[in-house]
Design a protein around this nucleic acid. Structure first.
Length: 188
DNA sequence: AGGAAGATCTACT
DNA sequence: GTAGATCTTCCTA
C-alpha cells in the first residue's frame, strides 16, 4: 500500500477543520512485528477555550504537547485517543471510530470478540483493538518511525455528516462531531 | 478515601 | 432503543 504520513502542518489548523480532514485517513499502529490499520470514519473536535466539554485540568498537560502528537487519557475504563491540533486556539481531535482494514484478526484477539461490526466502532473500542494505552501518550503521529502514525492513502469521495458530540454533559451550539455518511463502523 | 471522567456491555421493554 | 451497573485511572484532600 502506498501511504504518505500526514505532515505536521496538517494539524496546524482549527480542530474542526482537522477533524473533518482526518476522515478517510488511515490510522496505522505498529505492534511488535504486526501492522494494524484502520480507516478513520468518525471524529470530534475539542477546544481548550470556551468549550464546556473540555476538562480544565487537561490544559496544563496538553499544552506541553506539540502539533500532531497523541494525547491519550482514561475515561470510564477506556483509553481515548486524541490528536493535538490548533491554529490559534489550542484543541484536539478525538478519534471516535475506525473501520478495520488490516490486522483484523489481531484486533479481534485484543478485543476478545469475533464480531467485526463491533470491533472498532467506538473510541474505547478502537484503542483496545489497537492496543493504544498511556504508553503511547505524546507520541508523534506525524513522524516516520513512530509506533502510531496517521497516513493519507487515496482520495475517496464521501459525504461528511455532522452532529453534536456524544457523551458530553454540556455541549456547544456548534456541531463538532463528524462522520462518513453510510459507513458501517460509526459508533452509536 | 472519594468522586469524576468525552464509555461499554448486558438485559430488558 | 433505553436503563442501569460497572469498568480504571487521575485529581483533590
Amino acid at each position: 500500500m502506498l501511504m504518505k504520513i500526514l505532515p505536521k502542518n496538517f494539524y496546524k489548523k482549527d480542530p474542526t477543520i482537522v477533524a473533518k480532514k482526518l476522515l478517510g485517513k488511515f490510522l496505522v499502529r505498529f505492534l511488535n512485528s504486526k501492522t494494524l490499520i484502520g480507516k478513520i470514519v468518525e471524529t470530534e473536535a475539542y477546544y481548550s477555550k470556551d468549550d464546556p466539554a473540555f476538562r480544565k485540568d487537561f490544559l496544563s498537560k496538553i499544552i506541553k504537547y506539540t502539533l500532531g502528537t497523541a494525547f491519550i487519557y482514561m475515561v470510564h475504563a477506556n483509553w481515548l485517543l486524541n490528536i493535538i491540533a490548533y491554529k490559534e486556539i489550542f484543541g484536539g481531535v478525538l478519534i471516535r471510530s475506525i473501520e478495520p482494514i488490516k490486522g483484523i484478526e489481531e484486533m479481534m484477539k485484543n478485543r476478545g470478540i469475533k464480531d467485526i461490526s463491533k470491533l472498532t466502532n467506538g473510541p474505547g473500542k478502537l484503542t483496545k483493538a489497537l492496543k493504544i494505552t498511556k504508553d503511547l501518550n505524546g507520541i508523534d503521529v506525524s513522524k516516520k518511525g513512530s509506533k502510531l502514525i496517521i497516513c493519507s492513502y487515496k482520495k475517496e469521495n464521501f459525504e461528511i455528516k455532522s452532529s453534536h458530540r456524544i457523551g458530553v454533559k454540556k455541549d456547544l451550539e456548534k456541531k463538532l462531531r463528524f462522520f462518513i455518511k453510510g459507513n458501517a463502523f460509526i459508533s452509536k
